[in-house]
C-alpha cells in the first residue's frame, strides 16, 4: 500500500537531507562556540579557577537572553545578522544561522552544568600537583566532563530537530516544513504521518547513539 507518489518520496528524501544539514551544521557550530563559552563561564564563576564577575555576569546575561527569546522570534529578529553571515535571509543556509545561535546558548548552559559535575577534589589534586590553570582545563576538566558533554550534545541535537521544523518560516525547508505545507495545509495526512515517523526515528537514532557513546566513555 504505497500511498506516497514517487514525487512525494523524492520530496521527503530531500527534506530529510535539509533537516540533517540544518541540524548537523548548526550543532557543529554550536559545539565549536558553546564549549569555549561554557569554559569561560565555568572558570570565571564564583569559586572557579579564575573568578571574574566582570566577565561572568555579562556573559551569563547574554546567554540567558538568547535562551529566553522564543526561537521563532529570534530567527526573525536576527535577519540582518543572518544576511551579513549567510549573504541571504532565506533558504536552508540562512536557517542555520539562527539555529546555531540558539543552540550555542543552549549548549553553553548544558556544557556548563556538565563541567560543574566534575569532582572538585580531582581539580584540587591537580592544583596540589602543580598543574597550571590551562592544564587543569585541558587535562582534567574537559576529559573528566566528557561523558556529560556528549550527553549535552545529544540533548541539543534532539532540540535542534524540533527547532528546525520552524525553519520553514524563513524558507529553510526540512521535514517539519514539509509536514506543515503538505500534511497540514494541503490535507495530506499520509505525508504528515510519514514526516512524524521519520522524525521520531531520527531522534531515536540520535539519542541511542549519544547514550551509547556516554556509556562507552564513562568509567563509573
Amino acid at each position: 500500500m504505497n500511498v506516497l507518489t514517487p514525487a512525494m518520496q523524492d520530496l521527503l528524501l530531500e527534506s530529510f537531507w535539509e533537516t540533517v544539514i540544518m541540524v548537523g551544521a548548526s550543532a557543529g557550530i554550536a559545539v565549536a562556540f558553546g564549549l569555549p563559552l561554557a569554559l569561560l563561564l565555568h572558570v570565571t564563576a564564583p569559586g572557579g579557577l579564575s573568578p571574574n564577575g566582570w566577565i561572568n555576569r555579562p556573559l551569563g546575561l547574554i546567554v540567558n537572553a538568547a535562551r529566553s527569546t522564543p526561537f521563532i522570534i529570534l530567527m526573525v529578529a536576527i535577519v540582518p545578522f543572518t544576511r551579513l553571515v549567510a549573504g541571504t535571509s532565506i533558504g536552508t543556509g540562512a536557517a542555520i544561522v539562527p539555529l546555531a545561535l540558539a543552540a550555542t546558548a543552549f549548549l553553553a548552559r548544558l556544557f556548563e552544568n556538565a563541567l560543574r559535575e566534575v569532582d572538585r577534589g580531582v581539580i584540587e589534586a591537580a592544583r596540589a600537583m602543580g598543574a597550571s590553570r590551562l592544564q587543569i582545563v585541558a587535562k582534567v576538566l574537559v576529559p573528566e566532563a566528557l561523558p556529560g558533554l556528549i550527553a549535552a550534545v545529544t540533548v541539543a541535537l534532539v532540540s535542534l530537530v524540533g527547532f528546525s521544523a520552524m525553519a520553514g518560516a524563513v524558507g529553510g525547508g526540512g521535514l517539519g516544513d514539509l509536514g506543515i505545507r503538505f500534511g497540514y495545509q494541503r490535507f495530506m495526512p499520509e505525508v504528515m504521518a510519514t514526516v512524524v515517523i521519520l522524525l521520531i526515528l531520527f531522534v531515536q537514532g540520535l539519542q541511542s547513539l549519544g547514550d551509547w557513546l556516554v556509556r562507552r566513555l564513562s568509567r563509573k
Binding site: G121, V122, E124, A125, A128, M129, G130, P147
Partner: peptide, 16 residues
C-alpha cells in the same frame, strides 16, 4: 608544589 605530594580523604582520582 611538585616537591610536596598530597594524599586526600576521598582519593580524588581521575575516573576516566
Amino acid at each position: 608544589r611538585r616537591g610536596m605530594g598530597m594524599v586526600f580523604q576521598h582519593f580524588n582520582l581521575h575516573a576516566r
